[in-house]
Design a protein around this nucleic acid. Sequence first.
DNA 1: CATGAATGAGGTTTCATTCAT
DNA 2: CATGAATGAAACCTCATTCAT
Lengths: 199, 199, 199, 199
Amino acid sequence: MRVAGSNRDETWKRVRAAGVDLLYRHGFEAMNTRQLAEAAGLKPGSLYYYFASKEEFLHRLLVDLLDEIIVDLEQNLDGLQEPVDRLDAYVRTLVRWHVVRREETFIASIEVRSLTHDRQEAYMRLRDRFDVILADILRDGAADGVFDLTHPRITRNAILSSLTAISSWYDPAGPFGLDVLTADFLELARRMVGLRSAG
Amino acid sequence: MRVAGSNRDETWKRVRAAGVDLLYRHGFEAMNTRQLAEAAGLKPGSLYYYFASKEEFLHRLLVDLLDEIIVDLEQNLDGLQEPVDRLDAYVRTLVRWHVVRREETFIASIEVRSLTHDRQEAYMRLRDRFDVILADILRDGAADGVFDLTHPRITRNAILSSLTAISSWYDPAGPFGLDVLTADFLELARRMVGLRSAG
Amino acid sequence: MRVAGSNRDETWKRVRAAGVDLLYRHGFEAMNTRQLAEAAGLKPGSLYYYFASKEEFLHRLLVDLLDEIIVDLEQNLDGLQEPVDRLDAYVRTLVRWHVVRREETFIASIEVRSLTHDRQEAYMRLRDRFDVILADILRDGAADGVFDLTHPRITRNAILSSLTAISSWYDPAGPFGLDVLTADFLELARRMVGLRSAG
Amino acid sequence: MRVAGSNRDETWKRVRAAGVDLLYRHGFEAMNTRQLAEAAGLKPGSLYYYFASKEEFLHRLLVDLLDEIIVDLEQNLDGLQEPVDRLDAYVRTLVRWHVVRREETFIASIEVRSLTHDRQEAYMRLRDRFDVILADILRDGAADGVFDLTHPRITRNAILSSLTAISSWYDPAGPFGLDVLTADFLELARRMVGLRSAG
DNA sequence: CATGAATGAGGTTTCATTCAT
DNA sequence: CATGAATGAAACCTCATTCAT
């Protein structure tokens, strides 16, 4: 009962894309594997040729995304020494991800709870790297005297959460493009760390 | 079969408290009415004397909370004219709610999706008031020349989301009390609107 | 959607009886919860008001039966000192159980494999008591010189398995009643332990 | 896509051996064709070059085994006239099979239920030959006055089931070798038919 | 008000099997 | 012969909800 011309990679792309769409629109628990299968052009049971469980599917989506972001972030920070430059690169990177891969970053921000306890912990540990990287930038900038922070931990959370939230309100059909958004968040972040705008 | 000493209001409080706890810990879809009943000292069927459906229960929680916050917010803004003062009051109010009623505000931020389409829309319309109030403050401050905004809509979203996120990371057992948090967020908000700190 | 006049104990009896029948006729894996529910006059989901899983249901059946048999066996052995008398009582008891509760003992003999590893181990430990009791009888009889055994362990296994197998071949509609069967097995067991028949 | 060096007979042997192992350890219903394929170094679909269905596979295993045993048994009985000698040969043969091909005889004893109704009947008819052969031996011995039986059918079932059960308790790593076991069962069978041991 | 008993709809997952390649 | 991709049927189980008592 094989469908002619079918191909593992192609099908997986369809499953993944369908999954992102459904997770974005309905959420993990509200979405079901029947919808997922139908959207991917499969029968429900066939999905299990692509993942071991619905939850593992979510996990893979989230971890793959996180891995991609971290690699990109580290590349973009590579070679930059000055805290200001590093902060800029950090903001620029996160804004882009939350705009360009809006659906996935939104899913990631909201569906971590749906992971198994163990996988949730593992994911959190991975995600902590964002915190640590930003924390280091803030610490260095404060030590250099170029940043004027209140409590670093609070500032960090505020910056990070305002970035993360982009995927929840940004409307690609709206008035702002990636450029505008990036420029604004660069400015906002600089202000939050007590830096006078360059301009 | 009336249990001696049972009392509508008392029981409802137990149901509500149990619901908040379960929603906070597990989320709406992952929580079930068996757990809710048990935590409230009832049998599942009895819950339906207190709500018409699980989803209606969530709705009531969210709407009641939102109503309370809006009333409080409007009271705290009442009489204040200056944009700076109004911004301060706005921040102060939201920080407090997100700390003191952390669990409920967290639920609200994450479980709106679990509402029926209709109720979701109604809830969103109500919640838009926060946006509007803050938007007005920013607009007035910019018109007065005391605020130096990039794009108001972006600044507003950034401020609001950093406030809303508090309930997701704040740890009551951690190093910061409500005072510290409030002071910091006041400062951060002022910076974000381009106001030089008073101090 | 409660059925009028329904009652937990009555329903459980129906479920249990239906389960025994299905397990006897089809075996655990070949039987399904739909059949079980239908035979018990319930919908499939309702079964889970009576057990936590299909496997737990089997487990309960097996353990309850074993407990009953052990209690009965110990009662029947109580007060008997002579190995011959104890052997007789042992055989008499087991023959009766394998005839009177033929279906259940048959299930027990064949479906232990369907239990979870853990429950299987626990069950086996419980079941070992039969072995131990018989082993003790044989040992004492041999020590007294009234039994003439080859290897006790082999004799024990042969006796026990010939008793256990009764439930697999005994036909209640056949020519032998419990009395005949008991008399024959008493004689066979005596012969197997090398005892000259009394008659 | 023919794998170099692949060979129908060799592969079949691997499939068969893997099947015996899995059936012995997990049972027919609990074993699945994925495991079977993997253990045989194939992909699931390829199995169907070796059998038409999982159940047919089991059937072939059981029937082939039974055929082998019957041939062997008839050979070993061939030429023997005396009931005692024939009984000895019968016991000797069955003990050996249940020790040497322990896994397969165990499977046969327990998985007949998993066969289709039709195949089950056919198998049973074949297996009845064991009964008949033993029944004949007992009848002749009783007629000759060398056996002292209670009810022949009961004795026959007891002897046969104690032999068949060997595969379920015999431990090749244990204290008894085939010789000991054979000697003991010869003695036990003689006792069961009321014959005084030669030795 | 509350419970006890059950429903019914739907969920995820398993698995023998098929068939184009 | 063998694999890769998928099917389809059915399995167990969960859960919000109902309603007689």
